[in-house]
Design a protein around this nucleic acid. Structure first.
Lengths: 217, 217
DNA sequence: AGTTGTGAACTGATTCACAGCC
DNA sequence: GGCTGTGAATCAGTTCACAACT
């Protein structure tokens, strides 16, 4: 099974958008969708949509389009959201608290299986239904609860050391909310969500009177 | 004044990263920084850094590098974060509340000058030091308070209509947290922060055992 | 008719490599 | 020695255009 040719980075981002749009349409009763319809809804060309989907197999039916239920299943499988990922949240500040009560987290297959903070005044409290653990329990609980994902929601100054601890404990991926590039060894994936950059993008575009939109993750 | 050749989209994203790194180093007392140092810190080539910065002028000093204070001022000016932007926040749910107490918002020149929600049970309450206004006051307050930026933090189903109201009221840019593509007419900029996409990026990379990191905004 | 999948052409971005400067 | 700025070359991503299929 050698046919995994190449997957352009931008393609992976778009897969999420495809999935969301098709889920919406499927709920509205649509049985099929064409690359043209999908492209129009997302501001992309039909060729782009077809190229992206063709990276992973021939899901389309010439003359018909793509079957929504079939494509949803394929995309979930490709993206890995049909599996369940246990996650450790580190940092119970603004962002951490918002994430704890954020429904979509769980809906995408991520389960916050443990919460940590270094502030002794909140360690051992229960916040939004989660017990806050001390940082020194991190390694133990990550292994015990089969946690594969770390969520870094601490200030920039501590982000790297928290990431190091998570990786040492065995996580395979990190979702980083700190405004700081994380240096990680190979085999660990990092996705960063950076508000500062988003804000500055917007300031730049607005102050230049720039046209056009920019998807930001 | 024709010398505004072209600005690659990815360049704009990186400018934010440059600014952050240089600010950090400047605070540590560094007077200059070379493209090589900057690139190394951010995982980029030195040529990339120079090309990006050269889009906006010749800030560098051959043999020396870039002066930190000078470059910080230039970058802030380019990005527009040396100006002040009044923003309207729409939606006082999880994300909205987190944004209200999020310091970086203000530090990047964004001032939440008015907060709105459609839920009558929270309209007219004070939350995190902000009075929550009814949606029907939106147009009036946006004009009255010279608001140029709208922040959409409502469910996907209402995002487009909220964006339409903001634009009708006169905002020039929208920061969108709803998992939904916003259709906007020209002259209005949109930057979207999409957690679903970030989560799925991570699930994809981890389940593929993929190497490498991905900056996500 | 309508639609997919894909090689070819094109556009855009990154890297290379070096002239010019300190 | 070190460094910037930039044209040229390379690489990546997108769009085009059409054969194949329903």
């Amino acid at each position: 099974m050698p046919p995994r040719p190449k997957i352009p980075r931008p393609t992976v981002k778009r897969l999420s958008l495809y999935l969301r749009e098709i889920e919406t349409r499927s709920e509205l009763g649509h049985k099929t969708i064409s690359s043209k319809q999908l492209g129009q809804a997302l501001g992309l060309t039909d060729a782009q949509v077809r190229k992206d989907l063709a990276c992973f197999g021939n899901f389309g039916h010439p003359g018909v389009g793509y079957q929504t239920t079939e494509l949803i299943a394929e995309l979930r499988n490709i993206l890995g959201t049909d599996r369940q990922w246990n996650a450790a949240l580190v940092g119970v500040g603004n962002i951490g608290r918002a994430l704890m009560s954020y429904g979509r987290f769980r809906r995408k297959g991520f389960d916050i299986a443990a919460v940590f903070d270094s502030d002794p005044t909140i360690v051992d409290q229960d916040i939004a239904g989660h017990h806050v653990h001390s940082m020194k329990d991190l390694a133990g609980l990550v292994k015990e609860r089969d946690i594969k994902i770390g969520v870094v929601a601490v200030p920039a100054a501590h982000a790297q050391q928290v990431a190091d601890q998570l990786i040492a404990a065995g996580v395979l991926g990190i979702l980083n909310f700190a405004p700081k590039r994380l240096d990680v060894h190979d085999k660990v994936s990092v996705v960063s969500v950076d508000f500062s950059v988003a804000l500055e993008q917007l300031a730049f575009q607005v102050s230049l009177g720039l046209v056009g939109s920019l998807e930001e993750g």
